[in-house]
Design a protein around this nucleic acid. Sequence first.
DNA 1: AATGAATGTTAGTAATTACTAACACAAAAT
DNA 2: ATTTTGTGTTAGTAATTACTAACATTCATT
Lengths: 187, 187
Amino acid sequence: MNSLKDKTDQILKAAVAVFIKKGLQATTQEIAKEADVAEVTLYRKFATKQNLFISVIKHVLENQFNSKVMKLADEADTEYFFRKIIENRLEVLSKNTPLVKMLISESLMGNLTEEIDLPKLIFTSLKNGLDHHFAGDNVDTELCARQLGGIFLSHIVLPNEQPFHHLDEGDKEIVIDKYTRSVMALL
Amino acid sequence: MNSLKDKTDQILKAAVAVFIKKGLQATTQEIAKEADVAEVTLYRKFATKQNLFISVIKHVLENQFNSKVMKLADEADTEYFFRKIIENRLEVLSKNTPLVKMLISESLMGNLTEEIDLPKLIFTSLKNGLDHHFAGDNVDTELCARQLGGIFLSHIVLPNEQPFHHLDEGDKEIVIDKYTRSVMALL
DNA sequence: AATGAATGTTAGTAATTACTAACACAAAAT
DNA sequence: ATTTTGTGTTAGTAATTACTAACATTCATT
């Protein structure tokens, strides 16, 4: 028999894995099995599947997608600022592609817009950083944020290997440079 | 009682509407009700829900997303070429946002990748046009296609009103111009 | 008028699934 | 030692849902 240690983390961890594979349609049965707990334990801790789902999403948003945009926004050099944002976000995204795919999918389906407006989160996180960096300047930060978001989305939605895994370091820098130039062309 | 005219179109039309709202999770009951036919009629014509779903998607892909990219690719002026692609695709997308959201969502969920690889469709449609236009030139058409795709995706996934509905014609041209410059910056 | 094709109606099956109740048990806290 | 807490087990309910069978009906064609 299992120990009596609190199973909450165990459940959350398993739920992430299962929700990534199947989205909100995943069953509590599957999750319980993956977590190696009784199904009822899951209900005792999270009451409903929907609630577990939301908990999982909040959990991963807090722990795995902390944006560096604001920290970088203090940087004086705009080109460097852009390059670093792009570099950092593509890095994070490439390590969480299945998760992000699921999040976007569920968001587009309207399965989490009430509690968590993911597109808005992405967008305003970028826009706030840009607003900070370009404070006082006459820059269309909304368009820039959209463009940056588009670059990231293209790497999630469009077909591709893990970004840059097929490139050596030199080529990778060239690509990020090009992205940077393309965003700067909006200014 | 209803006429005996073939109900196939009626069902397809209703199925589009319902699938847009609920994705593959929509029930045949809902679709039959929306189409004002008996549920069994739907099964007699499409055998399974999955099959109806695929039929619907093939139908809309053929009828509503005919790409102009190839036609424009003959255009000599690269800047004009880009501008026209962007203009046209954003126009089409803005008129089909809910549909495209559903398609992307289901694609990311893996509910249609076997039969229809939507990301690949989008990507290769763009890339083929670019390859044609830049034949012989040393241009990273893959990166360009990704960038264009990113612009379109940003308008689907990120929060925004219908693209350009809040802008007058002059502002709209400015934005498309900026997008064009940003893609040209990749060359 | 008779036939056939397309559709509707009614009824049902079998599987899934979110969620609950009741009781048993083990370990930690008191 | 007793209580409390966390968990497991078994059993179940009520709802949903893809899909089918059998038969009735209506319209168009001949």
